[in-house]
Amino acid sequence: MDDETYRAILQKRYGKPSAGKLTQRELADFVNYLEDKGAEFTNSGKRAKTPRKDFYEIPDGTAHAKQKRWIAAMWNALDWKMSGLDTRCASQFGVDKFVWLNDQGALQTLAKDLIGRCKTKGINPHDAQPEN
């Protein structure tokens, strides 16, 4: 399928010019649509040799970057999968990706919860150091 056809389908079905702008539900629907049209998806079976601890790269220009780095560091200190942070943000705040969460109140709520969880596990949340 050429790029023009691909983007036309995205625009017609979802009103979005790129699959990167789709929600998780829309993306799943899009994959099903493509499979119904004959597309085949294969998993190469290749995985990263080592899991990345720094799942989230939060660039300096990102809104609330320092706070997001600290939240991610606490999440990591709790030894939780970083992808769970996206899941939490989607279910609790309606934002599909943690890095897209820009509501200060929501960030504070998340940080306060993680501080409590760290303390319960004997982790000093202020020792959690962001990696970037």
Rank of each mutant, 00 (worst) to 15 (best):
T42F: 08
Y33K: 05
S44H: 07
A39E: 07
Y33S: 05
T42N: 06
A39D: 06
L27E: 08
F41L: 03
T50N: 13
L34G: 04
K49E: 14
Q24G: 10
A28W: 01
R47N: 10
A48E: 13
D29I: 00
N32T: 10
L27K: 11
V31W: 01
A39S: 10
F41K: 06
R25V: 09
L22N: 03
R52W: 09
T50L: 06
G45C: 08
G20H: 04
R47I: 14
P51N: 12
T50I: 04
S44G: 15
L22W: 08
A39P: 04
D36W: 12
F30A: 07
Q24E: 15
T42S: 10
K21D: 10
Y33P: 00
A28E: 14
K37A: 08
Y33H: 15
G45Y: 04
Y33N: 06
F30N: 02
T42M: 04
G45S: 08
T42Q: 07
N32S: 10
Q24A: 14
D36H: 11
N32D: 13
G45M: 08
E40T: 15
R52A: 11
G45V: 08
A48H: 07
K46N: 10
S44Q: 09
E40K: 13
F41P: 00
R52F: 12
K46P: 02
D29N: 13
K37D: 02
L27P: 01
S44P: 07
E26H: 02
Q24P: 00
E26K: 07
D36F: 09
Q24Y: 14
Q24M: 03
R25F: 05
P51C: 07
R25W: 04
S44E: 07
F41D: 00
G20T: 11
D36K: 14
P51E: 14
A48Y: 08
E26M: 01
R25P: 01
T50E: 13
L22F: 05
E40A: 12
G20C: 12
A39Q: 08
E40P: 03
R47D: 14
G38A: 09
N43D: 11
N43V: 11
